[in-house]
Simulated scan of single mutants.
Amino acid sequence: MKVAFFDTKSYDTPAFEKLGKEKNITFKFYETKLNEDTTALAKGCEAVCVFVNDTVNAAVIDRLSALGVKTLALRCAGYNNVDIQYAKDKLRVVSVPAYSPYAVAEHAMALLLTSIRRVHKAYIRTRDHNFSLNGLTGFDLHGKTVGVVGTGKIGCIFINICRGFGMNVIAYDKFPAKDSGIEYVELDELFSRSDIISFHCPLTDETYHMIDENSVDKLKKGVVIINTSRGALIDAEALLEGIKARKIGAACLDVYEEEADVFFQDFSGHIIADDTLARLISMPNVIVTSHQAFLTEEALANIAETTVNNILACHNGEDCPNELHI
């Protein structure tokens, strides 16, 4: 069986090549993203494997189906880049709902600690033999209120980490976790009470731009915003204005709404065309990492194993617990 593997990075190939040899699957690795112009690369393949910034709209689905592709395998949890409804009866769509929730939750906390304790600034200073502490004053997490939006596996693990720091936890979720001991509140109350807000929910029509111009006004002054989920949960322009107005005290972002043309690439010798992203990065109280929260050895191994098992289940005509339906 042949599988076209799009948006390939160097860290993707070892685990997939190893499993491919074991399971008699030939992966054709392409650095290019899947879109309407690159679907022909899937010719002769039974399945395609895609990531968060590949485009799988109706036109792409039609072209893949015409090429004989039967399975679309997402090697990630989110699927907002796929027209799931249109894919019905054309392609089987499978995902990796849980690869390593610890990886993402731990990265969220790493961003928070780096930001509030100015670790990134101290690192740069001491590299230049500057051991001054001026401007590095942070604040304790103990006793602070953290608002967690989304209490799935990642959100709940992040909550446990926060409890370990002695933080007060409140949460918002359309579907509260039963018998969790979590204090659920309405979103407006979470915005007004939280010293720190961390997003761990999927991107849907309802969650699009949860942070926008109106919600910024409801935030507690000085709040720290963390987003390791999906970029479009936050209106980047509204976030920027909230920071400039001193309403938002800091932002820790592993995702960005318009990341597709920037993240996972080296632009160190170029000028970034995205003015909003450039301004965010220039802010002293903003930390941006390029969608790396998932990137641990354990997560990569789990992603490869689950993706291969998903593809094999579809190939064998079996039910797949990770198949997406609308």
Rank of each mutant, 00 (worst) to 15 (best):
K2V: 00
F6S: 00
D7A: 13
D12A: 05
F16I: 04
E22D: 04
N24R: 00
I25S: 03
K33P: 02
C45H: 02
C45D: 03
C45V: 04
E46C: 03
V56Y: 03
A58S: 12
A73Q: 03
R75Y: 01
G78W: 00
Y79F: 15
V82C: 03
Y86W: 01
K88Y: 08
K88W: 02
V94D: 04
Y99V: 01
Y102D: 13
H107K: 10
M109L: 15
L113E: 08
T114V: 06
T126G: 10
D128V: 06
D128Q: 14
D140F: 13
D140W: 13
V148K: 06
V148T: 11
G150K: 12
G155P: 13
I161M: 10
R163C: 08
R163E: 12
R163M: 12
F165L: 11
F165D: 03
N168K: 12
I170E: 04
Y172H: 13
P176W: 05
P176Q: 05
P176F: 07
Y184C: 05
L187P: 07
L187G: 07
H200Q: 06
D205S: 07
N214Y: 11
N214K: 14
K218F: 10
K218P: 06
K221N: 10
G222C: 08
G222R: 08
V224D: 14
I225N: 14
I226C: 13
N227P: 05
N227K: 05
A238N: 03
L239Y: 01
R246W: 04
A250W: 00
L253Y: 07
L253Q: 12
V255P: 03
D261H: 12
F264E: 08
D266S: 10
D266P: 02
S268I: 10
D275M: 09
D275P: 02
R279Q: 15
N285E: 11
Q292R: 12
F294N: 06
F294E: 09
L300P: 00
E305N: 04
T307R: 03
N309L: 04
H315G: 12
N316Y: 09
E318C: 00
E318I: 00
E318G: 00
